[in-house]
Nucleic acid binder design. Structure first.
Lengths: 338, 338
DNA sequence: CATAAATGTTTACACGTATGTAGTTACTGA
DNA sequence: TCAGTAACTACATACGTGTAAACATTTATG
């Protein structure tokens, strides 16, 4: 070992164990015959020095880095936080390291990823251009898509995880319908950049599909979108309630929206859930502490994380990726009937 | 370039530009004389091929990886989510990649980090043993400590960021005192593992210090701790209110706790803030949507993130790290008077 | 016993990069 | 003209690893 406090290398192990470096390598990777005696000596030395192969050097030899990159628009919310936590947990168990990058639409973004030698990327972004994803795929980098929208134009061997949001929203709509609601409104995200959901967005699609299945005509009054912040949303909800068009249920794209909607509904003097039902999405802390407690849809973050890593391991091993389907869970609290 | 879809290397650039690999290297790193003409050719070729030096190979040569590791107990909460987001943002601008690891107290954890060749680690953990941190420092790995507690035994060149939580809590206590509260209670974390806060914990310390400054004697009734979950906390708060000991203010270690406290207070028929004040910590979504809206303390995640990367750059450049001090911001809403 | 086969070990090179050192050319001043 | 230097380029090596191929030794086979 060169310095007193430097990380030991294969060479250090070999010298101390009195064998060649190659033997050490074979023992570590367990892919060649090594005599039992030397193997034992090597393993003891490894233990003694706390040797661990340098993953950087290993990556350089093209043997994989055990490194996955998670790309999302914004990790600062309950859903992503928990997903990241689970991802980190299953990744750690499999020896993987998880890195993070916000989705950015410029070329540099792609070359950066490529130059990082990560083994795979997991993408959960509404804003990342599909041709960038395509480029990653074309560079034979294993890609796992968390389907929050329909990645229509992405071709080639990309793994897809259907998190169940579409059917989750559909169940929510059905639930409200069965509890008597006939005038549902879908609440879309608030944003300063004004890009609204469309049929590519699986939540929006789920809402529309289920409404159609129920034979309900969608109108401009069925959707609240285009609000730039939560105050605007609050006002929009109040205006909607006080308008001539009837409403008896709000299906919201996430809990944060749902809480604002709920507060607006209550502020208008309506009873929840008797007059109006509200349902959110995420099972966030907010949904648990707000009163009345918000009914919501919980995603299976742990399942998603496991699925992602399974798919990655498949792809890393050269297998063609499959699709994985997960389901959401309804969490019925106090803003829905029954 | 070897395959059609493979990442270009320095060699590809050199061949296409008609220069030697060394020249390319010098141009990229701008640390040697290169004729203007060749420099131009190289840069054009770099642009054309979208070449970017392989950070893995560069790291192997000991030139740094532009890679920082963020270690926390649990990223699944509002505070960490936003911090991570900011960290990712400033890191990206400086060319750094941010990775994630949950704090684990075993040797393997340390060797894993060391074998990853990261340039620095940022630690924000209440549970990671200090001797593990010490070991990272001893291996001359730049360490930035986010001070949520007093890392008393960590010696050597570790950078420290004081996020202002201690003075934040102190301000909160003072505020409640000045608004008339004379019987304050500190609400500690809920946990199944039952490790309570002590004077090492900066929030707890802040509470105790300010109480002492105000000349208020701390008793066993001044603290609610040891609850294993939020239901238990709810009951504990109700019991406390209905006991003989007076209460007129709760200072909570985070918003999630504060929301449960607030709901319990209201359930006991008390008026907030007239009878009892409640203050949280984090400025989370929950604090914004709960009614009455929760007064809370906001941390400067962006400032913390910037400070962390500044400190890291200092340490990477061989300078001895300094301390950084940030401040919290009081967000007064409806659960405190005035 | 000779030879083939199986087992165990080592040598040598490659991955993509940075850079010390040496080499080449062109320019300067005497 | 020649030495000396500045400006530029190239060679060779190293980082820590994986592994093909060569080599060495033991064991099995005819």
């Amino acid at each position: 070992m060169t310095g007193k406090n430097s990380v030991p290398t294969r060479k250090d192990v070999a010298e101390l164990a009195g064998v060649s470096e190659t033997i050490v390598s074979y023992v570590i990777n367990a892919n060649r015959y090594v005599s039992a005696e030397k193997k034992k000596r090597v393993l003891e030395t490894v233990e003694k020095l706390h040797y661990r192969p340098n993953s950087i050097a290993r990556a350089l030899k093209g043997k994989g880095n055990s490194h996955v990159l998670f790309i999302a628009d914004n990790v600062a919310n309950d859903y992503f936080g928990r997903l990241l936590q689970e991802l980190d947990s299953v990744a750690y168990d499999k020896g993987y390291l998880v890195s993070l990058m916000s989705a950015k639409n410029n070329r540099d973004f792609i070359t950066r990823i490529l130059s990082r030698q990560v083994d795979a990327v997991i993408i959960s972004s509404a804003s990342l251009a599909e041709n960038y994803i395509q480029e990653l795929v074309d560079n034979s980098l294993p890609v796992v898509l968390l389907m929050t929208r329909d990645y229509a134009t992405v071709h080639g061997p990309a793994a897809r995880i259907y998190t169940g949001i579409e059917s989750g929203i559909m169940s929510a709509v059905r639930l409200l319908y069965e509890s008597g609601c006939r005038n549902l409104v879908h609440v879309d995200r608030v944003s300063r950049n004004l890009h609204f959901s469309n049929r590519q967005d699986l939540r929006f699609r789920g809402f529309c599909n289920q409404m159609e299945t129920l034979g309900i005509q969608l109108t401009e009054h069925s959707i609240i979108s285009g609000c730039r912040d939560y105050d605007e949303l609050f006002s929009a909800v109040c205006a909607r309630i006080q308008s001539d068009e009837p409403v008896d249920g709000f299906v919201c794209r996430n809990d944060r929206l749902a809480c604002t909607v709920l507060n607006a509904v209550l502020a208008c003097g309506k009873k929840v859930p008797d007059d109006i039902s509200v349902i959110g999405f995420d099972d966030s802390d907010s949904s648990k502490v707000i009163r009345p407690a918000l009914s919501t849809i919980a995603m299976d973050q742990k399942g998603i994380a496991s699925a992602a890593l399974e798919l990655i391991e498949m792809m890393v091993n050269g297998q063609t990726p499959t699709e994985k389907h997960l389901v959401t869970r309804m969490v019925l609290r106090e803003t829905t009937r029954q």
